[in-house]
Write a protein that binds this DNA or RNA. Structure first.
Lengths: 351, 351
DNA sequence: AATATGAGGGAAAACGTTTACTTAAATTTA
DNA sequence: TAAATTTAAGTAAACGTTTTCCCTCATATT
């Protein structure tokens, strides 16, 4: 144990420098170094300066595992989404990362791959790793399950879903108002024969968005023609199928509201393939504002889904919740949309 | 300190169960529980069974911070990419996550946002967090810097870049062979007047891909017309600019090889806008196989970049490296491509 | 001048594991 | 049967922090 009294033990190979090394070199106790590092407790000015200098020189970085152990919490936020490679969830993760880093936290990623068990497994695994702040994008768990989970995991935040009983830990998006907004836009351009291509899975978002359409019609004093409602899978192929179905029905239409951008692209492809001119004959609106919107010809008018901002917010909320920071029980966290106007929507031609 | 000798202390509020609780209830020492949990060391069959039962009943999960502290390593892999919200990096992350979870690790995400300092800062921050396996997608650091870093961080793996001196920790992609493959395809369809829209930043990938084009021409016995080489930023706008420039030059061409899918989309948009028919008059090839390729009209023929598989591989490598698992110094990790043929490339019309 | 106050900083316990040592019992060997 | 070996399981130190006490001065108050 040959320490040079004022220096570091160099006899052994590379060793990471600890708080004790700093303390020894600075001639103080580890407690004091800790106080300097964390800015808590009283430390004399001279002493503080000296310790800080040594910390610099030695390049001391606190060991996070030790800190977590004694503090009984980590500085990680967990994110559970179906598949991070999808643009939407990529944006979500990006927002979360920014926000986490902002407060000195790191982002732990889990893919749930659209499976109920893996959503729960992911939560448990994150929790076992000492990660008590968790953002969950749940597609398969029931409200009841989520309510139970949120009793057990106090740092749990649900993103993109609204559950009244746990409103204060839901960060969600106003689908109804957003699609109503789309109807407004189309109506303002003279469209009345508006078709809707929705998702075949009529849960939450699709339902809400459909509701928004109906509300929009009502507000505009129009009536929605249910013959112009088609549904399929919420992807490119589904969009194509919807357009096919629409064409087959023979009911005239001058605009299509798609459930999301992918479906909008599918709709456009199929319409063009069948000789329709987009947007000259048919206007099309998407939802999400994904990169695709600008790749399509015409570029697609859509709703911006502020998922990145929502994720940033959700992270802060999750961290607060985990800390027991008092958050008002009766407050919820609702985000709203804005329209991005591009080429796929035009004034209806005067016929 | 009122313990019921065989049970758990229930006087205080919710307390997470520790190895000591298990030991106490099972009537063994913590060491034995540890041995059971980790499957190391000798434990009698009866004893093992009993301990396992108690672990089940109590729902004991080892505290990861404590483990990390004593084992001097975490079970996290760090991923540093410019921006996780970009599709390419999203795919990278998805692959990494799968692979990490597969071996019981978690994925820690850091965005470097295309800044040199933040790449280094990210490495340091990950390391400080006890994360010794790191996947780095570096855009701004020099080879020299990376070599130095890899001396300091033994679990560091460089993805998407090849540095001979540290070949064994580079997981990369054969850009040269890939673009040569594109030339082959086009040539097989009768194209000779082939234009290239490359990135204005002529570092690494763009250089390699250009080299591949030249090689491809050589192999086909063709000569590349340098008047058909245009460059701009590697995004949609850049693609448009390239097409504009190409049109302006007045040199005839029947095909365009774009640096990536985004540029391909831009090229197509601008060509169409100027009255060219794609693919009837001009074939266009992209690179990456991003989602956009299927959104564009026509759908885009491209090269599949196997980034997901590469990331999976990289994670395993990084973990091995961090463990000092002997990896052959003179082995490198090269991935190759495959063509995805869609609508944007057609046989040249017999004129 | 005697006492109270408060600031600065040290000692040591605690966080929950793992593991090198040790010991006791059981088994094998001579 | 005695000695040697193996097996099973316990003891306690260590990992690197934070934090609660505590003590010692210096200063302020009477």
């Amino acid at each position: 144990m040959a320490f040079t009294i004022a220096g570091l033990n160099e006899s052994e190979g590379f060793r990471v420098v600890t708080i004790n090394d700093v303390a020894r070199v600075a001639g103080v106790s580890p407690a004091t170094v800790s106080r300097v590092v964390n800015g808590k407790g009283k430390v004399g000015d001279a002493c503080r300066a000296r310790v800080q200098k040594i910390i610099q020189e030695l390049g001391y970085k606190p060991n996070v595992s030790a800190q977590s152990l004694v503090n009984r919490h980590t500085t990680n936020v967990g994110l559970i989404t179906p598949k991070i490679s999808m643009e939407f969830f990529g944006n979500l993760a990006a927002g979360a990362e920014v926000s986490a880093r902002d407060v000195g936290y790191s982002l732990l990623i889990c893919n749930s791959l659209y499976e109920e068990e893996s959503e729960i497994a992911a939560i448990e695994s994150l929790h076992a790793k000492g990660c008590e702040s968790i953002i969950l994008h749940s597609d398969y768990l029931t409200d009841k399950q989520l309510i139970e989970l949120s009793e057990r995991y106090k740092g749990l935040v649900i993103i993109n879903r609204y559950i009244p009983k746990i409103a204060s830990r839901c960060v969600w998006f106003d689908n109804v108002a957003s699609t109503a907004q789309i109807v407004d836009l189309l109506a303002s351009k003279g469209h009345e024969a508006i078709a809707v291509a929705t998702s075949i899975y009529q849960n939450r978002d699709p339902q809400q968005r459909l509701l928004g359409v109906r509300q929009g019609f009502m507000m505009q004093g129009l009536t929605f023609n249910d013959n112009l409602l088609v549904e399929s899978t919420a992807n490119l192929e589904g969009g194509k199928a919807c357009a096919q179905e629409l064409i087959q029905r023979g009911e005239p239409f001058t605009a299509v509201i798609a459930y999301n951008d992918l479906m909008a692209v599918g709709v456009i492809h199929e319409l063009v393939k069948n000789g329709y001119k987009v947007p000259e004959q048919v206007s099309v609106v998407g939802f999400d504002d994904s990169a695709m919107c600008r790749a399509c010809i015409p570029t697609i008018t859509t709703i911006k889904y502020p998922i990145e901002e929502m994720a940033e917010y959700a992270v802060k909320l999750a961290i607060d919740l985990a800390k027991d920071a008092a958050t008002p029980e009766n407050k919820t966290h609702l985000f709203t949309s804005s329209m991005i106007e591009r080429e796929s929507v035009v004034e209806i031609p005067h016929s």
